[in-house]
Simulated scan of single mutants.
Amino acid sequence: MSSSAITPRSSLRTIALCFVVALLEGLDLQATGVAAPHLIREFDLSPAALGWVFTAGLVGLLPGAVAGGWLADRLGRKRVLIAAVGLFGLFSLLTAHSASYAQLLAARLITGLGMGAALPILIALSSEVASRELRNMAVSLTYCGVPLGGACAALIGMFSVMGEWRLVFYVGGVAPLLIAGLLVLWLPESRPAGSHPLSLAQSANALFGRPRGRSTLLLWCSCFCTLMILYMLLNWLPTLLAGRGLSRLDSAFIQVLFNLGGVFGVLLAGRLMDRQRSLLAVALVYPGMLLALAALGYVEQVQLLYAAGILAGACAVGGQLILYALAPRLYPDDVRATGVGVAVAVGRLGSMSGPLMAGQLLAAGAGVGGLLVATSPLLVLAAGSVAVVLRFEADA
């Protein structure tokens, strides 16, 4: 989108549309976790088999993010985003009508393709239309939709009639199809700044050549580790809490608080980054994530578990926002969606690994303590990697 085409009104409308799409993506991302206890009974799933249901959707996110970002840089953001939203809406509906375990896996896989393609475009669009001093906050406001959508999914799970697990997938399917029509009408067309889109080789050189190569690899490392932990929590939190003896209502309420905490973490991290306090955001987020994980595993009082849920959401989702707000700043206009898309895709490798690792550890009887031991080194690595990228950026 050329700077001459950007007006305050069009910027606000674009960010609002991106927020709504992010909200629907957040709802669908957590729909499987909300429906998990019902899926176990409906399809007679073991913990390991349920882990593969979670992972199937996340597998689709990876190629979707790479393809979505690259196609958006070549064909324009608008048309690729509309196609992505329509795809994940349609296959969310098909998830509700899965008649077998194989159909359930296939529906989640293709849903993930659409969601994966949408996210880097949302980040690139919101970053491009905002002024420089508010760019991180624009990405934050857009990304707030993801945890709010997760909270909506948890609320649907709490109030679904007679435990009807399909309701969350109906909402997550119909709403994106309706929003796709609004995108056709209201989202302005956007193309990369350059008149000739970069080839695949030129895009790769822009990511890995001087001066961005080291920052790209360190960003990927932090994305992998951070999303591994985040998606382990998003998918397994209701089941872990139920295993500790909490009621379905308490477990769902903690998941709502997790997502509301995520909104707070996203806004705080974005504000700190706009005020040039990015390292402080990192210092708050990653130790806080470790503390929250320990509390969720070992605290007995329900009220303290509520607080731990808020802290876990603020830190886990806030950490993801730091990475997603940082990524567009590293790359020029003609490769921005590609750079963000590949970083998101590498993060998706972590998001695929997290639920699967948790499922295998729990099936082996490791319990919450085993999950804490496995995740602690990853938190240290994630924090160190993003801190070095921020230092490189400050020295540039």
Rank of each mutant, 00 (worst) to 15 (best):
95 T>R: 01
307 A>Q: 02
249 L>Q: 07
335 V>D: 00
193 A>H: 08
299 V>C: 04
193 A>F: 08
283 A>C: 11
1 M>P: 04
213 G>R: 11
71 L>R: 08
224 F>T: 08
173 G>T: 03
231 Y>F: 15
317 V>N: 15
322 I>E: 12
196 H>W: 05
244 R>I: 15
358 A>E: 06
262 G>I: 02
192 P>R: 10
10 S>A: 08
60 G>H: 11
81 L>F: 09
254 I>P: 00
174 V>H: 00
308 A>M: 06
335 V>M: 04
204 A>E: 10
67 A>Y: 07
181 G>I: 09
115 M>A: 14
321 L>C: 11
291 L>Q: 06
146 V>E: 11
1 M>A: 14
106 A>S: 11
373 V>H: 05
265 G>F: 12
306 Y>R: 10
375 T>H: 09
123 I>P: 01
6 I>H: 07
289 M>K: 01
318 G>W: 05
108 R>C: 13
78 K>A: 04
109 L>M: 09
353 S>M: 14
271 R>D: 05
218 L>A: 05
18 C>G: 06
272 L>Y: 08
125 L>M: 14
306 Y>M: 10
7 T>Q: 10
250 D>R: 06
5 A>H: 10
168 V>Q: 13
234 L>G: 04
8 P>L: 05
33 G>L: 12
264 F>Q: 02
302 V>E: 00
204 A>V: 05
50 L>P: 03
387 A>D: 07
112 G>V: 06
182 L>E: 01
246 L>F: 11
120 P>S: 05
207 L>P: 13
76 G>D: 03
12 L>M: 14
162 M>E: 14
297 G>Q: 06
294 A>S: 14
333 D>E: 12
188 P>V: 09
303 Q>P: 01
290 L>Y: 07
323 L>S: 01
312 A>E: 08
107 A>P: 01
309 G>K: 07
129 V>P: 02
257 L>F: 12
283 A>S: 11
24 L>S: 11
84 A>N: 07
210 R>H: 13
285 V>W: 00
164 E>F: 01
93 L>T: 04
316 A>I: 06
124 A>Y: 07
9 R>K: 12
310 I>C: 08
95 T>Q: 00
345 A>N: 10
352 M>H: 00
199 S>M: 07
109 L>A: 02
172 G>L: 15
190 S>T: 09
230 L>M: 13
213 G>T: 03
361 L>E: 00
23 L>G: 01
328 P>K: 02
166 R>Q: 14
248 R>E: 13
42 E>I: 06
215 S>F: 08
221 C>Q: 13
138 A>M: 14
170 Y>F: 11
381 L>Q: 07
19 F>Q: 11
297 G>K: 03
245 G>S: 09
353 S>Q: 03
370 G>A: 11
315 C>L: 08
224 F>W: 11
196 H>F: 00
43 F>Y: 13
18 C>W: 02
366 A>Y: 15
348 R>V: 08
127 S>R: 03
99 A>T: 15
221 C>L: 15
314 A>M: 14
124 A>L: 09
291 L>R: 02
29 L>D: 13
109 L>C: 05
360 Q>N: 08
159 F>K: 00
373 V>M: 14
102 A>I: 02
15 I>K: 03
296 L>S: 03
19 F>H: 07
249 L>E: 13
251 S>E: 09
299 V>G: 00
384 G>M: 15
156 I>W: 00
287 P>F: 12
157 G>Y: 07
12 L>I: 12
